[in-house]
Design a binder for these strands. Structure first.
Length: 264
DNA sequence: ATGCCCAGAACCTCTGGA
């Protein structure tokens, strides 16, 4: 089985490109982030015509996450237990969606950006990651054999070698010790970040800004990751970062991360 | 080469993204 995660930066602007990619790569399950649309504007029919079931949560033009599957889609949850809200009257945002696809519990995750280390969005980001880790630990404790995939745009640069020049991020989000600690805490919860295991090369990126020739100059960031529970990690045969997908007109600023699982 | 911000809402220019 082939599963993947991709921040598509608007599903309506890129639906045809996503379908073409699904068919070209033979991907069975895709977690997508930043759909940037409300549920009633999601282009369901484009994906259904290609043979995929769709689960989506989106309230307006921001955030939005989905799971597409051609191997079954069940037990959809539009948020994780304890997921924090944001704002003066805290509201749950469309940043997490869970669904079970052929025995694998898939979570499509769009971690809050943080804006800047002195912004309320930053403390929200840390709280969000901590609550997700708490939920993920509980899932694993409840069933140590569960196959769980935490897939998405984590908005954290875990290592200095995950960015073209870490000095450019001094004073910014994504590289602070608290964010990195929150990211690596998933290891203590029993999860393994399998893209690092299979693609360990330094300066391997998943995102390049649209501005200032970032992609041709390879000024990118590695911020899209796949944490797997032990039972799922043992099943991962390979991981690929599809850098080709950043090329050409109409590309997202992120590229897909693909996991190949041993067939059961 | 991959090419010098993009998408959405609204209809002008802001918000958010990193």
């Amino acid at each position: 089985m082939r599963i993947a995660t991709w921040n598509v930066n608007s599903v309506r602007a890129r639906a045809d490109r996503v379908v073409a990619w699904l068919e070209r790569t033979g991907t069975d399950v895709l977690a997508i982030q930043e759909t940037k649309c409300a549920d009633d504007k999601f282009p369901y029919s484009v994906f259904e015509a290609a043979g995929y079931e769709v689960a989506h949560t989106g309230f307006h033009q921001w955030n939005g996450v989905a799971v597409l599957s051609r191997v079954g889609l069940a037990d959809v949850e539009p948020a994780f237990p304890g997921q924090p809200g944001y704002g003066d009257e805290p509201a749950i945002e469309a940043r997490a969606l869970g669904a079970t696809c052929d025995g694998v519990r898939i979570w499509s995750l769009y971690v809050p950006h943080g804006r800047s280390p002195d912004h309320p969005h930053y403390t929200y980001k840390l709280r969000w990651l901590e609550q997700l880790r708490t939920a993920a630990a509980a899932w694993h404790d409840a069933d140590p054999q569960a196959q769980i995939a935490l897939l998405g745009d984590w908005n954290v640069i875990p290592l200095d070698t995950d960015v073209y020049d870490v000095a450019d991020f001094a004073g910014h989000t994504h590289v602070t010790p608290a964010e990195r600690e929150a990211f690596f805490a998933f290891e203590q919860a029993g999860y393994t970040e399998v893209s690092r295991v299979h693609v360990p090369a330094e300066h391997t990126y998943t995102y390049w800004d649209y501005q200032q020739l970032a992609f041709p100059k390879n000024r990118g960031l590695r911020i899209d990751f796949a944490y797997a529970s032990p039972a799922l990690a043992a099943r991962v045969e390979g991981v690929r970062i599809d850098r080709e997908e950043r090329k050409g007109k109409g590309a997202s600023d992120h590229v897909p991360v693909i996991l190949d699982l041993e067939n059961r």
